[in-house]
């Protein structure tokens, strides 16, 4: 072994450290028999890592990217990727920490809704890959005796994801997803988002008043009457009937039982 070869040269540690540091030259111990530059060759790997991670984030947060523009987003995503590289080989799960990063990212502080839009896009990705389950429709709910309605314990569909926001995140998401030319959105309007994928298509909608509190309470396993009480206590404008329509027909529910008895 050549004397110039430092201990561990060719090892992962030096290689890995330099992949995430654009200021570093190539690690020692690389050889380019064809006569090129080791730095240039190493930059292929480093560039591929950076471009790959940014592309993953761009695919998961397309609305955030459209809101701030490609250049701003890609640079912001590069910083996030360097700071928080994936911890798993399953890339569809990468980016869960991105909304928190965006919330604390000074150059984006003029867009206070951006982090919540990112949370909505995280929710969409989770819903897309969530476990499958047959949703429960109004017919199933209608079979319970009226006296038991308040005691129903509802299991939410595995794809249900809720995002509460003081900003109009669903309207922002919709126009930036569907419209070639975006329409104006009054961003100060609070919108609580429901994301659900009852079969194979994910749907995003705005919950009626108190819906976030109501569904969150149901998700903890409390019976329907108590979930309604909790929502009404937290949100004076809570609209029970509107929220029950959501519960019965949007594919939000996967199971329902009276107390401990299965459906």
């Amino acid at each position: 072994m050549p004397a110039s070869l430092e201990r561990g040269a060719g090892g992962e540690r030096a290689f890995a450290a330099r992949l995430l540091d654009p200021d570093c030259a190539a690690p020692r111990g690389l050889r380019v028999p064809a006569g090129g530059s080791a730095d240039r060759r190493f930059s292929v790997y480093r560039n591929n890592v950076a471009v790959g991670l940014v592309a993953t984030l761009a695919a998961r947060f397309p609305v955030c990217r459209r809101l701030v523009g490609d250049a701003f987003f890609d640079a912001m995503a590069s910083l996030f990727a360097l700071q928080s590289p994936p911890r798993s080989a399953v890339m569809s799960a990468y980016g869960e920490g991105f909304p928190a990063f965006v919330a604390e990212f000074p150059p984006a502080c003029g867009l206070p809704y951006l982090a919540d839009v990112a949370r909505l896009e995280v929710a969409l990705g989770r819903a897309y890959h969530a476990a499958d389950a047959e949703p429960l429709g109004p017919a199933a709910f209608g079979r319970f005796p009226q006296g038991a309605w308040g005691e129903l314990v509802v299991g939410l569909h595995p794809s249900v994801n809720l995002v509460a926001s003081p900003h109009a995140i669903v309207s922002l998401w919709e126009t930036n997803t569907r419209d070639a030319t975006v329409r104006p959105v009054a961003v100060a309007q609070a919108e609580d988002a429901l994301v659900v994928r009852p079969h194979l298509a994910a749907a995003v909608s705005v919950l009626p008043p108190g819906g976030h509190a109501f569904l969150s309470a149901l998700a903890t396993g409390v019976p329907l009457a108590r979930a309604a009480e909790e929502a009404a206590a937290r949100v004076p404008a809570f609209d029970l009937a509107a929220n029950l329509v959501i519960l019965f027909r949007s594919g939000v529910a996967a199971t329902a039982r009276i107390g401990a008895a299965p459906l």
Binding site: G10, E12, R13, F15, A16, L19, L20, G29, Y45, N48, V49, G52, L53, T56, P85, P86, R87, S88, A89, M91
Partner: peptide
């Protein structure tokens, strides 16, 4: 190839001696 080092996943096929 390798792609993970000390828990970090690089999403690339990296070379070994």
């Amino acid at each position: 190839a390798w792609s993970t080092h000390e828990g970090k996943y690089f999403n690339d096929l990296l070379p070994l001696p």
